[in-house]
């Protein structure tokens, strides 16, 4: 039943030169499901979600997004990118455009919406991430937390069915992490399909349907958060959790 799955990954493999980054990674994500992916750095978790919108190309296996198979065909890639929004660790806002223009550009040029409609959508989303009063400013004039909220609004403006978050809070000062997580929690509560690479275990506990643990390019363990945190099965998962939960 492919129409219940937002994402299906089957035995996906990827190499950087001779380095095997993804090893037979298989993952199915149901529509509306929230997945948190964690693991030590270099474990392939960012690469995994970057394969979903083809920022990285997988070399074997299959990836289906909303039923569209990702091939190196440009049209297939466009089809998939239209359904998938992405938020990056470094925000990657366009510094030469205002906050509002950041959120309307792709609506106008990709979705072909009239400018007025695009601006209306953008302002509603900026309102939702509580930053609408900064709409006329440039990204460089905002704090990191504010920029990341704009980046979320920019992705949402394309009406994606799936949102990918690649360590969205890792580049933020500690006092700004809360405001970004808050927006993400709201988004989760509205039923968005989300894949979040993060070390914020509080966020995982609160919103995740499943937590996926990766190590050395493999998906080692996946479980609902309660089970994952209280009763991890693999030795490697226990070790990772004991390291990351110190001080929590």
């Amino acid at each position: 039943m492919s129409d219940t799955w937002a994402i299906e990954m089957e035995r996906v493999n990827k190499w950087y030169g001779r380095f095997h980054v993804l090893k037979d990674a298989s993952l199915k994500v149901a529509k509306g499901e929230r997945i948190v992916i964690c693991g030590p750095s270099g474990s392939g978790k960012s690469t995994l979600i970057r394969c979903i919108n083809h920022l990285e190309e997988h070399q074997s296996g299959r990836i289906l997004v909303e039923g569209h198979e990702l091939t190196s065909n440009l049209r297939a890639i466009d089809e998939v990118r239209r359904e998938v929004g992405m938020v990056f660790q470094q925000f990657n806002l366009f510094p030469h455009l205002t906050v509002l223009e950041n959120c309307t550009l792709a609506q106008i040029w990709v979705r072909k919406r009239p400018k007025a409609e695009a601006e209306k959508t953008a302002l509603e989303l900026l309102e939702r991430v509580r930053i609408v009063e900064q709409a006329k400013k440039y990204p460089g004039q905002l704090s990191g937390g504010q920029q990341q909220r704009v980046a979320i609004a920019r992705a949402l403006a394309m009406d994606p069915k799936i949102m990918l978050f690649d360590e969205p809070t890792s580049a933020l000062d500690p006092e700004m992490i809360g405001e970004v997580l808050e927006v993400m929690v709201e988004l989760a509560e509205e039923g968005m399909t989300m894949l979040v690479v993060t070390h914020e275990m509080g966020f995982a506990r609160k919103v995740a349907d499943r937590v996926v643990f990766m190590d050395y390019g493999r998906i080692v363990e996946e479980a609902p958060p309660a089970e994952f945190f209280e009763n991890p099965k693999h030795e490697r998962t226990k070790q990772f959790l004991s390291q990351i939960l110190v001080g929590h």
Partner: peptide
């Protein structure tokens, strides 16, 4: 990251 963000938006 600029090119990646643009690509992710479908440009």
């Amino acid at each position: 990251g600029q090119r990646e963000a643009a690509a992710a938006l479908g440009l």
